[in-house]
């Protein structure tokens, strides 16, 4: 599965457009991480727990998108975009979407 955020794949031609595919994941951080983060908040610096959490969350959203693309018989996803929104306190929604195509 070829995934890119360009509108074309260099050296390949698009045979068929299959429409938009998407994946999302809503995750909250657990209390332990929250406590560590609030301690770290005093002195500033990187909150590694959150970095990892959001990274895993993106990974999951992408897996869902890829599964959807495979289900409709695509072999590439073009023009992929990430988007984040905070739905409630302490939880973030990660959304990833792109155009599923079949390449030559």
């Amino acid at each position: 599965m070829q995934i890119t955020n360009l509108e074309t794949v260099p050296g390949k031609t698009i045979r068929q457009h299959l429409g938009l595919v998407q994946g999302s994941s809503v995750r909250a951080k657990h209390v332990g991480r929250d406590i560590m983060a609030s301690l770290k908040n005093f002195f500033g610096g990187e909150l590694k727990g959150y970095t990892e959490l959001l990274s895993e969350s993106r990974e999951e959203a992408m897996e869902r998108m890829i599964a959807q693309a495979k289900a409709i018989g695509a072999n590439a996803i073009l023009n992929v975009r990430f988007s984040t929104s905070s739905v409630t306190q302490g939880a973030a929604e990660i959304y990833v979407y792109g155009t599923a195509v079949t390449l030559e």
Partner: peptide
Amino acid sequence: ESALVRANVTISIDY
């Protein structure tokens, strides 16, 4: 060959 690369970081400021 192309590959999607991404990286994230969370930073907070001090009190």
